[in-house]
Design a protein around this nucleic acid. Sequence first.
DNA 1: AAGGAGGGTTTTTTT
DNA 2: AACCCTCCTT
Length: 664
Amino acid sequence: MNSDATENTAAPMDRHSELNPPQRDAVTTLSGPLLVLAGAGTGKTRVITARTAELIRSGIAADRILCVTFTNKAAREMQGRIAAQLGGGRRAQKPWVSTFHSLCVRILRQEITALGYPLTFSICDRRDQESIARTALRDIRVGDKTMRPGDLVNRISRWKSAGVTPDTATAHTENDLDFLSAVAFRKYQIALKTSAAVDFDDLLLLTNQLFCEFPDVLSRQQQRFDHVLVDEYQDTNTSQFQIIESLVREHDNLCVVGDDDQSIYGWRGAEVEHILGFQSHFPGAKVVRLEDNYRCTAEILDLANRLVRHNRGRHDKKLIPHKTSGEAVRFAEFPDEVSEAENVVREIKYLVNELEVSIGDIAILFRTNEQPRLFETELRRSKLNYILMGGQSFFDRREIRDMLAYLKAIAQPKDEVSLLRIINTPARGIGNSTVEKLLERSVRQRAGMWDVIPVAIAQKEISAKAGAALGKFQQLLNRYREQFQRAPHDMARIAHQLMDEIDYEGEIQKQYKDPQQQIMRSEMLDQFIESINEYVKRSDHPSLAGYLEDAALEGRDEESDQEKELEQNALKLMTLHSAKGLEFPRVYMVGMEENLLPHRRSIDGDDSQIAEERRLAYVGITRAKDHLTLCRAASRKKFGKSRPSLPSRFLFEMRSDSESAIAT
DNA sequence: AAGGAGGGTTTTTTT
DNA sequence: AACCCTCCTT
């Protein structure tokens, strides 16, 4: 009805004096452990930033304050908000705002070098992990049971974040699957080690290990920070908890902010127990509850409250709406997923073109990454601007991964994962059989790939031709290694030269027949060179390893102003997971069906997994400020086949009254 | 060794 | 429907 997007009617809280009483309480409690239980839309990030600013005003040096976030995006945003809070005069003062992983890398780099060891590991990203997992699983099979690499990586990640090693994992197997994964876990760890690589979880584990084994390292790090603040505390896993606990042990000046109802990362090792048990971990902790919601209309909030009431074992809180009522939440049903996309997009087109709704105010949220495709097609057809957030990132594209693998193999000669990726891309006469033989020998001799080549040639295991190709390839890598070392400021140019020398463009022409694809891929490569350029510009001591580290931790580098503008004028397509922490005037939650939300794989699991899916739905609903539409399709295609799709159980739970809630 | 055809598998969520 | 893997031909 109301055609123009409702402006920020919310939260009169930008000024400190306009904080509501509990918020002010949280902001001005400056020492000791503090738990801020903040429901959705209650201004929790604002409390963190205001509190940080308050600490600085009270005389704490900014660089003795550490704010920890989970994503780089959140870190950047927080940095900006704190700067805004402090105003111009204190612009020079910047607290440390960092993700767990960047924090750990910084600590490791600093301290390991200080201990006199060379720091030469490379960081594996998710794709690398999966490819290691794939080889680890290759000849492991129990009966006909096999495991997908992605599942293994998740399992290993959960183990690692809980401090489980391959040894302890093997000791506690209860079934074949456990045993299978424990064996693969060991192989995975060995592969990482021989590649001189660490994964994301190792960064945290190594930091903890460093703290345990070198007390002076720990105390040095403890003395760096007088205050630590953690956002989204419900998502901390055990190693993250340990790091935080170690850092604040001496002074307990720890402020954590979170909402147990928004814990949606249990599958990767997050433990709600950390937020539920905060007061027993940190005796004497003060607890502040923020229950005044300034974001959602009463109708939206009512729905969210009703849904989440079906979960047990939560801090009971009730969000109080502070917005005048809006329109009713809408429920829509369509015959199939194509029609769902068509209709949602048609409505959006109408809103934007006829009612002058700003397209940047609209978001479509979904459970899985396969869902947005249809919406993309429809949006493009309707000539509506959109961005797919968090999807296939820049560094996930095949050509970028290939180039990165080159750089990694150059930076770290031991990195066999990267080496294997590019050893014959573009084709240079080193075929599968050659690689197989080398791999086999390297496992047998427990030596690196490069080390076994001379023997393999001497034994006539591989052809002279392949041997020559290998020699030439090694020379290429060595030559570039030297060049990158000699002129790190020239990295972008050297990388470009490398690309030309291996004729990667030619490879693209060969691989993709479609000329449009070819153009797009080439553009990607240009952007890749550009991203190196930007790295060199912003860093004091650029190095190849430094660039690769950034690429692994940051994903895409900071958005330019241009991109920010683009983002503002585009509809957002994103998963429920990546929507956490954001808000939009208009939200469409699509695919509200059994097997999708809750997802099939959590239905098969235990109750706690359904509860997590329920929280996911809760997160989605509470992203909406004014308008919310919940959509479902009566049938949906899966693996190319159309099958009937039932409405999500959550739809019934939201609409029914408390009886069923009590029954659970 | 390279390229292409055909067959089988896949889709949770992410720092 | 898209992707990956394997096998087959050259």
